[in-house]
Computed example of a mutant assay.
Amino acid sequence: MPPILDIQNLYKSYGATEILKDINVAIDPGDFLVLVGPSGCGKSTLLNCIAGLEPISGGRMSIDGRDMTHVSPKDRDIAMVFQSYALYPTMTVAKNITFGMKVRGVDAATQAEKLAYVAQQLQIEPLLNRKPGQLSGGQRQRVAMGRALVRDPKLFLFDEPLSNLDAKLRVEMRTEIKALHQRLGASMVYVTHDQIEAMTLATKIVVMKGGVIQQIGTPAQIYNTPANLFVADFMGSPAMNLIPATTRANGNGTHIEIARPGADPVVLVDAQARDLPRDVIVGVRPEDIADAASTRTGADAQEAECLIDIVEPAGADTYAVLQLGGKHVTARLHSETTAKPGAPQRLAFDLGKVSYFSPDTGLRLN
């Protein structure tokens, strides 16, 4: 079975300015691909290239095995949901959803059947006779999704569809989109700058920066084994701690020495680490630094006494901030932690989850 979307060596330039550089990505039918990165990284431009709204400057792209490089948007068998919803204000919800089918000459019975199906799927049956001006942001978003769903296209494209909603509604709609994907088994490409949205929705994530793909992988791969310092810092909330350290080979593994103010360095012995350069950046997620008495860390955990600077209760968790390697480091502790600001606390570092990066190239070393 061919990939539902296959992009090879894609470039996009505006004059002399290169926006997308050598983009290569493919997804299988039923995949939920999320393009994520900071503003200006090229993710929306890439989505527009997939849609045919922007001509590409080099490379090729196919949808379901058919070359779409120079095919017009209307002939690509795609449906797009925009950030602005793009609803017709003078039409009812029902007419907004069926308008595209009417233009394409779909018979009235099929229109009615598809309208009833998507209205039930999206739970918008009571809204069908209203106009967009009478709807909330979340309801408008459902209508925009309904208009896409009646198409039954090869590929759904979403351009930051939740960014205009408030935080609570965004979480609810995120859950609905995920459930919709699971029910329909549809192929989706979704653009967001919100890395939590990317982690929760995607079957595959593309992390972008400056028009270049930094890493492609499952949410677990992106989170647990980031390819470089940018991905490590961008994906995760709170972000991965990135701590400068020096290494020293030893018979029982590699000694990782991390400086701290007014005290001897913290020394951790990683039995698995091999062939590391002298200077490294140690990447460790906040949840992989726990109270020494905690059962959360694994068999590779090593303990060290650390001075706590700040304690931030956050309901089920308590975040503790300390200084290591000249950086503020966040530990995610249990809510019952005994950690106090200005007092030492014995912490366990899970070396089985640690990432090592080169300070020179930023690339992952393990």
Rank of each mutant, 00 (worst) to 15 (best):
G137P: 01
D75S: 12
G105A: 11
A148K: 10
L122P: 06
Q111T: 02
P126D: 07
M173L: 13
Q121V: 12
E176R: 04
A109P: 08
Q141A: 02
V150P: 02
E176Q: 10
S84N: 14
E172L: 12
Y88R: 10
T90S: 12
F158P: 03
R76Q: 14
Y117D: 06
M61Y: 03
S163R: 13
M68C: 09
Q121I: 09
K102G: 01
V103D: 08
I56L: 15
Q123T: 02
A79T: 06
S57F: 10
L162E: 01
E113P: 05
Q139F: 01
F158N: 04
F156L: 15
E160R: 15
Q121T: 14
R147V: 01
Y85V: 03
K168I: 13
I97N: 06
G65Y: 08
T90W: 12
A94Q: 09
E160W: 15
A94F: 04
E125Q: 15
R174V: 10
R66S: 11
Q121N: 08
Y117S: 12
S57Y: 12
G137N: 06
G133I: 02
T98R: 00
D107S: 13
Y85R: 07
R147G: 03
L162C: 03
S84F: 07
I56V: 12
F158W: 02
T90K: 10
K114V: 01
E176D: 10
A148N: 07
L127Q: 01
L165A: 15
P73E: 13
E176W: 06
L87G: 08
E113V: 02
R174D: 04
A109T: 14
I177M: 01
A167M: 13
L115F: 08
G65R: 05
Q123A: 15
L165F: 01
R147F: 01
V143A: 06
I97W: 00
Q134S: 08
A112D: 00
F82W: 09
Q111H: 09
I177L: 06
S72C: 12
V81F: 03
F82Q: 08
M145V: 11
R104P: 11
G65L: 14
T69W: 10
G100N: 10
T92G: 09
S136F: 04
R104E: 14
S72K: 13
E172S: 12
V106W: 06
S136C: 10
M91R: 12
V118M: 09
Y85Q: 09
V81T: 07
